[in-house]
Write a protein that binds this DNA or RNA. Sequence first.
DNA 1: CCCATGACTGAAG
DNA 2: TCTTCAGCCATGG
Length: 108
Amino acid sequence: MSKKEENFFEKVYNVARKIPYGRVTSYGAIAKHLGAAKSARMVGWAMNASHNDDTVPAHRVVNKQGLLTGKHHFDGINLMEQLLENEGVLIKDAKIINFDTIFWNPND
DNA sequence: CCCATGACTGAAG
DNA sequence: TCTTCAGCCATGG
């Protein structure tokens, strides 16, 4: 990876890092915040790369349905759910129950 | 350079 | 309501 390209990741990371404790957001919301609403896939891809950066709470980023689509990218299949539940997030079958309640919009 | 893939999303049938 | 399709664009082979 070239250093310049970090800018794209940094923008994603910067937003992810702003997610409050016990809250979550979606890839699309972050993408929109970056000015690339159609590039939600790139956000997810950036999250995958964020494993290199432990300051990024990737477990707080899920898809728009509140589904933990990226759980298998973590160490264990249950790690993501575990981390979220630890923050008071209710999870059921890889899905956030109170998603609408704890959803956090980066634009706010 | 071309092709396949992906932690997504919204529109269309 | 559910299923399919097409855009999105960076990365790797």
